[in-house]
């Protein structure tokens, strides 16, 4: 299959998620059939980096109006590129916030539908994605004529196979200049900013106790705090807890919060929606306490206790204290 792989940059460097998307692209076709696309106002370094990967060629989509990401600019540029590179059978992205912002519109413009957040590719090709907050998986196929648009979930495809090819000649690089008019860009994006000074660095914590919706009320957080203290762990949370203002946003683990990989991650009353799992599944040892035996958190857990957290958590705190003595 001929595959167009759209890479994404952050501060002038290609994002790791893009190399995971390359692994997915390699499932669909041999390296020589893969065209890597870098996009922006200055893409020389990005293109050189991509040319050293197992790809057939690299295209620099370059225009001054692509200096800062806008959905309008990216859709216009990539639509022209895809039409120019016809026939492209599959267009592969990493499922980032940026891609979620424009790829559905780009696909729509071409009469297509993005198959987003793909976790596996099976023969066919069939694209597997999660449903019902990770409780089920669904297998999707492209049925129309024209390119199939696919974005892959962070962490689902391991980038081992994408190491640079020592000794091999770099892939050829060409430049494509789209026609974009400033008036086409309707949104005015500002510079990224952080909400406030970070006072906790979950990324360097060795042990984390994380709490989710199962805790029911802010007043109940104390039992989880006591467990964290007994373990010498940092307290963290899934998104709904921070949405409710029960814990500060900086303690949130997941795609919109921090990505952590401690030695021990203990998830209390967290069902394990995809957005949470991507932020913690790299942890060395994962423990889940949940009343629902079918909760997706158990799919990534090493140890699980199925039960009422209001009984299990205090019992665990006591057991830890007893073990110390």
């Amino acid at each position: 299959m001929s595959v167009l792989l759209v890479l994404e940059q952050s501060c002038g460097k290609t994002r790791r998620a893009s190399w995971e998307a390359l692994v997915a692209a390699l499932r669909l076709g041999p390296a020589e059939n893969i065209t890597a696309v870098v996009i922006g106002a200055q893409t020389e370094a990005l293109a050189a980096e991509a040319a050293a990967k197992p790809v057939g060629k690299v295209i620099r989509v370059e225009h001054p109006l692509l200096a800062q990401y806008t959905a309008d600019g990216f859709c216009a540029a990539l639509q022209q590129l895809i039409q120019n590179e016809s026939p492209t059978e599959v267009v592969v992205f990493s499922h980032t916030y940026q891609v979620r912002d424009y790829a559905p519109a780009l696909a729509c413009r071409m009469g297509q539908v993005l198959i987003g957040d793909v976790v596996a590719i099976e023969d066919g090709p069939k694209f597997v994605r999660q449903l019902m907050q990770g409780r089920l998986i669904g297998s999707y196929r492209h049925s129309g004529i024209g390119p199939c648009f696919v974005s892959v979930q962070a962490g689902a495809f391991r980038p081992d196979a994408t190491d640079t090819r020592p000794g091999a000649a770099p892939a050829p690089i060409t430049t494509f200049t789209p026609t974009i008019d400033a008036a086409q860009i309707r949104t005015k994006p500002g510079e990224p900013f952080r909400a406030s000074e970070q006072t906790v660095d979950l990324g360097s914590a060795q042990r984390i106790v994380s709490v989710g919706r199962g805790i029911k009320e802010a007043a109940n957080l104390s039992i989880v705090q006591e467990l964290a203290t007994a373990l010498g762990a940092e307290l963290a949370a899934s998104r709904p807890i921070c949405d409710n203002g029960w814990l500060p946003m900086e303690r949130q683990v997941g795609s919109s919060g921090q990505t952590v990989a401690p030695r021990l991650y203990l998830a209390v009353g967290i069902s394990g929606a995809i957005q949470h799992l991507v932020g913690m599944k790299g942890s060395q040892c994962i423990v889940a306490i949940n009343k629902d035996p079918d909760a997706p958190i158990f799919e990534v857990a090493d140890y699980g206790i199925v039960g009422d957290l209001f009984e299990v958590v205090p019992a665990l705190t006591e057991a830890l204290k007893a073990a110390k003595q």
Partner: peptide, 30 residues
Amino acid sequence: TPAVVLDQIAAPKKQKSTQILPGSAKEAAA
């Protein structure tokens, strides 16, 4: 006409084999 079709749904495959610790809260905790 749909461009994308959901062919089949299934229970997810486990990524890890989870050891579920049985018993009362106290037993499981210990």
